[in-house]
Simulated assay, not measured.
Amino acid sequence: MPAAFRPAALAPDQVRLTYVGHSTFLIESPRLVRVATDYNDYVKPPVVPDIATMNRAHSTHYTLAPEPGIKHVLHGWRDDGKPAAHDVTHGDVHVRSVATNIRDWTGGGTVRHGNAIFIVEAGTLCIAHLGHLHHTLTAQQLAEIGRVDVVLVPVDGSYTLDLDGMVEVLQALKAPLMIPMHYFSRYTLDRFLDRVRDLYAIELAETPSLVVSKATLPAQPKFLVLPGR
């Protein structure tokens, strides 16, 4: 671990979330188990994670050459077309996946089970990373996801789900805290925030990292914008 990256210890009910950029977050548990979402070759966390989740929409969401120190590499797809169904426990962290479909970028069709939503349970929190979501969620998918406290949301409105569709997903999930990602530019981020401003409170954070627990979740659903790219 680099000497410059020595975060303060977490209480047993806390989780540290750091927005690395694009769709990559570093999630750290009280026992410092580290999960990196949409781990790839371009946007990387400052430490090698214990668990890396990936989706295959574009090369900025996965790598086929992960660092050897990663203990669990979880692809959000399977080469045989069946749904990825991860259910992994490492230390005090539990990670599971819910399969979703993806656009076929070459033929314009749909690849069933081509991506996954990853749910990370750590501390007292349940965190859902929506990945490169291309469609609204079915009742079965919502049931498989279950109750979540924090949702990491792609808000570009074009490469992933359109703005109205993403709002429908968020209203179905009913998470107290939502954090935007995958927005490319301030214009794209502001376009999404303008769409949800009448529905949710919005807060702009000064740093890309926060410590959160069940006790510190907002009383009313809120968007927290972490600086990133």
Score class of each variant (00 low, 15 high):
Val167Pro: 01
Gln140His: 07
Asp38Trp: 01
Ala8Asn: 13
Gly146Cys: 13
Ala116Trp: 07
Pro227Lys: 06
Arg112Phe: 14
Leu74His: 15
Val169Trp: 12
Ala205Asp: 07
Arg6Val: 12
Val20Asp: 03
Ile127Leu: 14
Gly123Ala: 10
Arg195Met: 03
Gly146Asp: 10
Val35Gly: 03
Ala128Pro: 04
Val73Leu: 06
Val151Gly: 11
Ser97Tyr: 03
Gln220His: 15
Val155Cys: 12
Pro83Thr: 01
Leu226Thr: 01
Val111Arg: 13
Leu177Asp: 05
Arg34Thr: 02
Thr24Glu: 09
Tyr19Val: 00
Gln141Met: 08
Pro208Asp: 09
Ile179Asn: 10
Thr18Trp: 01
Ala99Pro: 09
Arg6Leu: 04
His58Phe: 04
Arg31Gly: 14
Gly131Pro: 04
Ser213Trp: 02
Asp156Asn: 15
Tyr42Lys: 06
His182Trp: 15
Arg56Val: 08
Pro66Asn: 11
Ala116Leu: 12
Phe192Tyr: 14
Cys126Lys: 15
Asp92Arg: 07
Gln171Pro: 00
Arg191Asn: 13
Leu10Ile: 09
Gly131Thr: 09
Arg103Ile: 03
Ala172Gln: 15
Asp198Tyr: 00
Ile117Cys: 02
Gly165Asn: 12
Arg191Phe: 06
Leu142Ser: 08
Val35Phe: 05
Tyr187Met: 02
Met54Val: 04
Ser97Trp: 04
Pro218Lys: 03
Tyr39Met: 09
Ala65Thr: 15
Ser158Thr: 10
Leu32Gly: 01
Gly91Lys: 05
Ala9Tyr: 02
Arg229Lys: 09
Trp77Cys: 04
Glu28Gln: 13
Val155Asp: 11
Val98Gln: 07
Glu168Leu: 02
Arg195Asn: 01
Ser185Lys: 12
Asp50Trp: 10
Glu144Gly: 01
Ala116Gln: 02
Asp190Ala: 03
Phe118Tyr: 11
Val150His: 05
Val15Asn: 14
Gln171Arg: 15
Phe223Tyr: 07
Ile27Lys: 06
Leu199Gln: 14
Pro49Lys: 12
His72Lys: 12
His75Ser: 06
Leu161Met: 08
Ile70Ser: 05
Tyr183Gly: 00
Arg78Gly: 02
Pro154Asp: 13
Gly123Ser: 11
His90Phe: 12
Met1Pro: 14
Thr37Ala: 07
Val98Tyr: 02
Thr124Ser: 15
Tyr62Lys: 00
Lys71Gln: 15
Gly157Ala: 12
Asn115Asp: 12
Ser29Trp: 08
His72Asp: 05
Ala175Gln: 10
Ala128Thr: 10
Pro154Met: 10
Leu137Thr: 05
Val47Ser: 05
His94Tyr: 06
Ala205Thr: 00
Gly81Ser: 11
Phe192Leu: 07
Leu17Asp: 00
Pro30Asn: 09
Gly109Tyr: 06
Ala4Asp: 13
Arg16Tyr: 00
Leu170Gln: 10
Arg147Leu: 06
Met54Arg: 03
Asp92Leu: 07
Val33Pro: 01
Leu64Asp: 15
Asp80His: 06
Val95Thr: 01
Arg191Glu: 12
Pro227Leu: 01
Leu204Ser: 05
Arg191Leu: 11
Ala201Phe: 03
Ser185Phe: 03
Asp194Phe: 05
Met178Asp: 04
Val73Asn: 13
His113Gly: 03
Asp87His: 14
Met166Ala: 13
Leu152Gln: 02
Gly109Pro: 09
Ala52Pro: 04
Thr110Gln: 06
Ala172Cys: 07
